[in-house]
Design a protein around this nucleic acid. Structure first.
Lengths: 368, 368
DNA sequence: ACCTGCTAATAATGCGCATCATCCGATTGA
DNA sequence: TCAATCGGATGATGCGCATTATTAGCAGGT
């Protein structure tokens, strides 16, 4: 027989006080003019210790009080399947770590139905969200309307990945793709490269926009001409790189860098001897015996962790309840809603000085 | 302003009925002598549709009624860090899949404090469990006392991995290590091997016990002598294998098969030409360019999925509420509490006939 | 007219907790 | 000596829902 759980009333009985008193002791008492003597406090605490009482989260929640100590994680794609795992994995490591430190549980919204390969937040979904105190959102295929709704309902959430919409009310933890890309260009220039191409699908996702942005501004700052290769086909792309006599290219991981390099070598251009290839992020599908890429890496673990910490702050600020250790009713405003993390350089083996170091055919004034 | 959520009372008002009626309609009405006319029913359903009402899980829970549609996942080690990820990953794929199909959310108990590298269920932990309708347990370092407590409190849970304690009341989904191991021995014998050793640390965990069990019985059935190598050191183990002139060994994945094979080759014994090595499960830490192992594989994804389905059944049976689609108040007893899944053979490249095929020095009567 | 039997629905209650309004006794102030 | 104050704690209430007990209305039956 699953004997009934210990309730505050039980504790109260044991301590010879009222249920309300127990509640006050547990919550640090503060309400209106309520005071509990140290003696009573101790008696209650003892009773709690003896009975092993712990609050029923459902009841707490219903009573509008305490947090459930549950933070949600909503991924726009299935989380664990092989392909996604490489992508989500690192984020989750960070998230889990942070969750452990924060002492919260993680709720994965696997119930949200998947439509066209992406998860949606249906009506029921919204209700489900309520079980968690707040929610982390991650994935590439977010739905604007849903985000807006989240914002409107004032539900605490944090997006993992920079998101520009809504003039900045949307909290996120992103990576500095712009800065990272700029640094790659600068590195290449320092090595002596001048003809530096950008390989990437036209994409409207934020990372792509940022990378292109970084490339553009860095090239401009160096007085070099920007050149994009935008072919769908890897072989064609490689051909174009050869044709254009690029001595280096930067490429986003989703554009099959490994295959591209293979194609280049098939055409007699060795990497990095003839062409340097810098990767703007980690490889998506690490291949056995793949190349040791140079470029930068996105600090995914840290992003995950930081995002959860941020969320935790938002939740706390949002909640009527204050931290009773410090006692301060902290001004909620001092949380940095937008965090951009540095993408550290990776020293691999795919960058080298151009073969014909510094040919005097200067490209600086090359017409587009 | 986060406008108040729609409640049953709101719906009731709109439909011109009482809150109770709404509740009845939602739950299929059945209780005691309560009847709702089809007309009213429709009015209520319409109101629900219009308002977009969905139940507040906390309230449902408090009222002792409905399920939260949340299933917990408790791992005895941190889930996502690199080392664990390879292990837990496949289980989680299956679990997530099942969760999606079942339309439930997954609650990861990351709040449980880690002591000596393994998570424990503290007092608070027990309470937290209550948020989920039931819970999956996985990991190698389970705590007997905790399991017993779970059993005692009648909380629905399923262990992933065979667990023998408690005379069978403990529900689990395991893998058939015994059968898998037996088949490996049989395969080796069929190839012509006679001197087949077992490499494995003495371990008291169930998989190890089962593998040893399988090895013992298969060897006995074949009339061969069992021989164990139980050294801590990989090099020493390799030496022993050479000394004993084994033509084949079976080895559990936790015993560094890759390093062992390296050591063997360092001693001039090629795998599989001189020594066949069969792996009793997947490699723990897949290495780049690692060997293509022969042996069997543990169907981890399927285990995860099956475990969640089983849990879901247990929860449903345990719950007072019955499935109102089928209407049947199914006899709870027909759930198979113990599921053992077949471990399919893997055809890799580490098994071959013994070099000196069928030497007439028969080992069958070899004294131990 | 009065009781029975039945349908259709409602009122009331409680789950465990947080919180507001209240209350009691002991000081203190004048 | 009586009112004002304050420390110390309690009772009542409601969150949103499931469920039990109860009622209202009405068609026979005698």
């Amino acid at each position: 027989m699953p004997r009934r759980r210990i309730t505050q009333t039980d504790v109260a009985a044991m301590a010879g006080v009222s249920q309300a008193t127990v509640s006050f002791v547990l919550n640090g008492s503060t309400p209106a003019g309520v005071r509990i003597s140290e003696e009573t406090r101790q008696r209650v605490l003892d009773a709690i210790r003896i009975t092993g009482y712990t609050a029923n989260p459902a009841a707490q929640r219903l009573a509008g009080g305490g947090l459930a100590q549950i933070l949600g994680v909503f991924t726009y794609e299935a989380t664990f399947p092989r392909a996604s795992r490489d992508f989500y994995g690192p984020f989750l490591v960070g998230i889990e770590h942070a969750a452990e430190r924060l002492g919260v549980d993680l709720l994965l919204f696997t119930s949200a139905p998947v439509q066209d390969g992406r998860r949606r937040l249906t009506r029921e979904g919204w209700q489900r969200l309520g079980v968690a105190d707040g929610c982390l959102l991650l994935g590439q295929h977010e739905h604007r309307g849903e985000l807006q709704h989240l914002l409107d309902t004032n539900y605490p959430f944090v997006f993992i990945g920079k998101r520009g919409s809504d003039g900045g009310r949307l909290p996120y933890v992103g990576a500095d793709y712009v800065g990272g890309t700029v640094r790659q260009i600068d590195r290449l220039v320092a090595l002596g490269h001048r003809r530096i191409g950008y390989v990437g699908m036209r994409g409207t996702d934020q990372p792509t926009l940022d990378r292109v942005d970084g490339y553009r501004s860095a090239m401009k700052a160096q007085g070099l001409t920007t050149r994009f290769v935008e072919l769908d086909d890897v072989a064609a792309t490689a051909a174009e790189i050869v044709d254009q006599r690029f001595t280096a290219v930067v490429v986003a991981p989703e554009n099959h860098p490994e295959e591209l390099a293979d194609e280049l070598e098939r055409r007699g251009r060795r990497v990095p001897d003839d062409v340097s290839v810098l990767l703007l992020g980690q490889p998506h599908h690490p291949r056995r015996g793949g190349r040791p890429w140079s470029g930068f890496s996105v600090p995914r673990e840290e992003m995950g962790a930081r995002a959860l910490y941020l969320l935790s702050r938002l939740v706390a600020d949002d909640s009527p309840k204050r931290d009773r250790e410090t006692g301060r009713t902290a001004a909620a405003a001092d949380v940095e809603l937008h965090q951009i993390l540095v993408c550290p350089d990776v020293e691999g083996g795919t960058a080298a000085p151009p073969r014909d170091s510094r040919p005097e055919t200067d490209n600086r004034t090359d017409p587009a």
